[in-house]
Simulated scan of single mutants.
Amino acid sequence: MWKHIAANGISFLIVILIAAAAALGWGQHQWTGEGPLTSATFFEVERGDSLRRVSERLEEAGAIRSAEVFRIGVRAADRSGDLRFGNYEIPAGANMATVLEIVTAGGPSSFRYRATYVLRNSGTGELRLSERDPATGEVEEIARFAYEEGVPVEYANLVEEGVPMQYRLIIPEGLTSWQVVHGLMAADFLEGEVQDIPQEGMLAPTTIDVNRGADRGELLADMQAAQEQILAEVWENRAEDIPISTPEEALILASIIEKETSVPEERGRVASVFTNRLNQGMRLQTDPTVIYGVTNGRGILGRGLRQSELRGETPWNTYVIDGLPPTPIANPGRAAIEAAVNPDSTDFVFFVADGTGGHAFATTLEEHNANVARWRAIEAERSNN
C-alpha cells in the first residue's frame, strides 16, 4: 500500500514538475518571443507610474500579450524600480525584453505628434502640427494655424484627449521684446504671466523643445541669460579698431544689422557700411530705426514710411540723430553681434535692395544712386504685374 501511495506521489510530483516546466517555457517564450505589435506604436510612461499600471497599459495598447507575465519578468530581472517617465516608440514585433529596455532607458522622448510654434513680428505666432507615421517614419503636416484665426479640430482634439505631444518653440532673430512676449502669451501650451517686457535686445533668439505647461517667465529668463553670455563672449573677441566702445553699443548696432538683412553672408558687409559711416561722422540713415521710433517695437508698421516720419525727431530716427540710437531696436542673434564687432573690411558707405532679397553696395553716392534707380525700376515692374 505504501509503495502504491509513494508511486502515486512521485507521479504527481512529476506531473507538477512537467507543468511547471511547461509554464516556465511558455513564460520564456512570451518574454523572448516576437511581440504582438504589427506596426510600431508610441507609448507614454507617466511620471509616478507603477509597474502594474505600466504593464496593464502596455497590454491595453497591444504592445505585450500579458501584463502579468511582463511583471513577473521585470521582477525576475530586478528592474521594478527602473521605469523612466517619457514617451517611447515601440517597434513592431518587439518582445517583452525589448519593451522593458525601451521603457527603462530614459533619454529623449519619441512622439507621434509635434507642435512647432514659430513666433512672428506681428506679436503672435504660427503653430504647425505634424504627425510621424510610426510604421514608415514619414512626417506629414496635418494643420497650420495662427491662434487668432481659430484652433483647428485636429489640434483641439489631441489637446482635449491629452495625447502626448512634442512642443517646439522657434523664436527667430530680429523680433522685439514686445513681439516675443506677446507671441509667448498667445501660445496655449505655455503658462505663467509676464509682468514686464524684458530689456530690448537682451533676449537670445532660440529654437527649443519645451513641455506643455512650461513657464513663460522662466523661458524669458533663460533667453536673457543666454544673450548675456553671448554678448560677453563676442565682446571679448572684438576687433580693436571698431567705433563702438561698450557691449551695449555693440548690441544696438547688431540689432540694426539684424533688421537690415536676412542674408547671412551680408551681415559683415552691412556692418562695414555702418562702421564706415560712424568712423566718417555720417548719420546711419537706416529705415528700421525710424520704424522702431514710430511703433515703439510693438507689432509691425504695415506700410511704407512717410516723409514726415523720416524727418520726425525721435530718439531712434537715425536720419535726424548722430551716431547710434539709445537702445537696440530688436533682439539680434549671435551672428549679427559678431558682425557688429568684427565687420568686413570694405569702403562701402551705401547699400540698397537689389531685388533678389539681398543688397547692392556702393562706395560713392553716384554708384548708390544708380543702384537706387535699378531698385526703383524693379519695384515699378513688380507693381505693374
Rank of each mutant, 00 (worst) to 15 (best):
P152H: 00
R114L: 03
W178K: 10
S255V: 07
N342C: 10
N211T: 08
Q195D: 13
E233K: 14
N211V: 11
Q199P: 06
E367P: 13
L365G: 06
G62S: 05
I257F: 12
G106M: 01
S130G: 07
V320W: 02
P264V: 09
V210Q: 01
E101D: 15
F351Y: 15
L58D: 09
V294T: 05
L119Y: 06
F43W: 13
A336W: 05
E249Q: 15
T363Q: 08
T41K: 09
T38A: 15
E240Q: 14
L284S: 08
E60D: 15
A61W: 02
V372C: 09
G48T: 11
G9L: 13
L365V: 04
T356R: 01
V103A: 10
I378K: 13
T261W: 10
V210A: 13
N385K: 15
G217Q: 02
L251C: 10
N211F: 15
G35E: 05
T136F: 04
E381W: 01
R47W: 01
T346H: 14
I16K: 08
Q307D: 11
P343Q: 12
D215A: 00
A204I: 01
N296C: 06
A232I: 06
L100V: 08
G323K: 02
V45T: 08
T356W: 06
D188Y: 14
G297M: 06
K3A: 04
E309Y: 01
I142N: 00
I257M: 09
N296R: 04
G192C: 00
S130A: 08
I329H: 08
H182D: 14
I321M: 04
V290I: 09
T176I: 00
E228I: 05
G192A: 02
L83I: 00
G293A: 04
Y167M: 06
G86F: 07
R53Y: 09
V54R: 03
L100A: 14
F350W: 08
G27H: 03
M185K: 15
Y319K: 01
G201Q: 01
T295K: 07
F43A: 12
P264L: 12
Q28L: 07
V270L: 03
L13D: 10
A232P: 11
D215W: 10
E173T: 05
N331K: 05
I102D: 06
G25K: 05
Q307V: 09
Q166F: 00
A143R: 04
